[in-house]
Design a protein around this nucleic acid. Structure first.
Lengths: 347, 347
DNA sequence: CTTAGCTGGGAAAAGGTTTTCCCTTATCGG
DNA sequence: CCGATAAGGGAAAACCTTTTCCCAGCTAAG
């Protein structure tokens, strides 16, 4: 009585199926059936109910549906990639694959904190997610959580904790091949490889592909230079490659775009032109870096969005009760050609 | 009969409160009360029920709780920041503020697609999110969706669609002040400003602060150079600033870290040393860029995680029925000092 | 011994939807 | 006109939890 005027904004009560039914003069059962194309009734009744629902702005309460169907139409995405460089493109692909099925995605960044990971996983399970997708920064950089023996299906993207898990990763060996073959086709003869630390599995996988392609083609193999994933390392590596007395490389395949950036800067400092004197290819195709490089950097793209799509669709089929063979699925990379290797294809 | 052996993994049925109650020999009502510290019963009964729940691994079904409480303990985060450079730190802050309240976050990237935006917002509302946080790439870069008159509270972070909305943004003017004051304290006299396009509100806000601080201190104002948010523009801007005949700047305040990067590279090409000849400060403190710059870049950090925290907490109080004054809340930036201005504070 | 009051615990409704089963009425063939 | 059948629609259970009563039994005061 004292205060009819609330300053707090009051939100209207959602309209329920019951409201629709009452307004249309039928039972909730009939209303439900009308809206879901179930049961039998005259076309007019069905249409009348639908029209009523429309005019009232009825939207079924997903919580009630989920409770009954034992499916929440949500999935969880776990990541520890703070800046989202990998996980966001992945997320886009996943979301893209799932949005049409009406599935939404909980994103949880667990950093490297097992406690936080545990907390988020429990929150997801309590919310009855239909499944979980776990990503890492790299295939052998796992999340600080144990997801085995959960009550829901789990899919790994860009990481693989154990051989029995269902995992989608990029074919890094294939990506390396793509790069080296590209150099070869352009006539490059002495191709070097500057990459990240030995502690990463992909470093070895790519190095192996690098050696294989060169050997297959009778080109000299320069022992890959392992270092950090940084620009600074790219810079230093150029010193090792170009400051000696031996024959100099005419191409450098880099483990990521930042290394490539450092390599290009260092080459410029030595008066070597890219792409004329030396061709450079990066990895990751991190557009914001690759495009800003001078010249714009040709780079191997891991197709993360596509990878996310596949992971999303597979999770969906798992949720639907189908089974999926355990193990790794490698998805192909693609080469994005810019101007750091010379002779772009169309021009 | 024909096939007892399913190859599909079968997930165990979740244990319900009913199971706990049956096992403990009480009614579900009593079981519920025992677990929620409600109602009256002997301490032994309560403990027995709790022990039973523990041993059975009971976790309450969040969907059922939500249905009853009319709160889903989820919020939606809308963004159009594909690479997540801004939205991921924001997300971390939000998540951090909400996880203790048991709230999970749906992340939706709507790109620039109104249809996708609509789709995601409807999915969120159907899932009965308790509220929505909308972010943009910049304060005047809005999402392609209309969030007014929704059934749930909405908070904007890093963007503000209209003056009546509740919005949290960084204090870009204050950030600019921080940078210029820093230069001034270090004794820089001719401070230039190279920034983004005129179409961004923050460009003007920062430029105004830039002019104000210089004027207050009797230092010369060099008309800010507006261009793109790119390295290339930073590069070009140096030509405009340093290739003429007039007196040269001894400091450049840049609109983002990429511009700063371009500026530093261009200065180096002209034989000008950073920080000795020219000091440089960036904006955004995008660590992966700022730290890789040579020398490492001093940069204004927008405290996005803190901003996300505030936004999250405010949304929570709004959901709790409290009200929040409409309008913008500006949160302070901070200056992260590295080596691009000379004389770091401690050493 | 009666009655008020407390204690421990349970029955049932509520939340919103879907689905199964049942009932009523109309239609049709004979 | 009778019985069978189909058509249209409704009642109620189910999903799982919380919360509001309510009841039975006991204690203590009068």
């Amino acid at each position: 009585m004292a205060s009819d005027d609330q300053p707090v904004p009051v939100f209207p009560k959602p309209v329920t199926l019951r409201d629709v039914a009452a307004r249309a003069g039928v039972s909730v059962a009939t209303a439900s059936k009308a809206l879901n194309d179930q049961g039998r009734m005259t076309a007019e009744t069905r249409e009348r109910i639908r029209e009523t629902a429309r005019s009232l702005g009825f939207r079924p309460n997903s919580l009630a549906q989920s409770l009954l169907r034992r499916r929440s139409f949500t999935v969880g995405l776990l990541t520890n990639d703070t800046y989202g460089r990998f996980s966001l493109p992945l997320m886009s692909g996943i979301s893209d694959a799932l949005v049409d099925a009406g599935v939404s995605v909980f994103l949880c960044n667990v950093e490297e904190d097992p406690r936080l990971g545990q907390l988020h996983v429990e929150a997801m399970l309590d919310k009855r997610v239909d499944g979980i997708i776990a990503t890492g920064k790299r295939i052998d950089r796992h999340l600080p959580v144990d997801l085995s023996n959960l009550r829901v299906p789990v899919i790994y993207a860009f990481t693989q904790p154990d051989p029995d898990a269902v995992a989608f990763v990029s074919d890094d060996g294939g990506g390396a091949r793509l790069a080296i073959e590209h150099f070869r086709r352009l006539g490059r003869k002495r191709i070097a490889h500057v990459t990240g630390p030995a502690s990463f599995a992909v470093v070895h996988e790519r190095a192996q592909a690098y050696r294989a392609v060169l050997t297959e083609n009778g080109l000299p193999v320069i022992e890959p230079l392992l270092g950090a994933w940084s620009e600074a390392w790219g810079h230093d590596a150029v010193a090792k490659l170009f400051d000696g007395n031996g024959e100099k490389p005419d191409a450098v395949f880099c483990g990521n775009d930042q290394i490539a950036r450092g390599v290009i800067d260092a080459l410029r400092e030595r008066g070597l032109g890219v792409p004329n004197d030396v061709g450079v290819i990066g990895f990751d195709n991190w557009e914001i870096v690759a495009e800003a490089t001078r010249p714009p950097l040709t780079s191997v793209d891991m197709n993360l969005a596509a990878l996310g799509r596949e992971a999303g669709l597979t999770l969906l089929s798992l949720v639907g009760g189908k089974s999926a063979a355990p193990g790794i699925r490698k998805l192909p990379c693609r080469l994005v050609v810019r101007q750091s290797c010379g002779r772009p294809p169309d021009g």
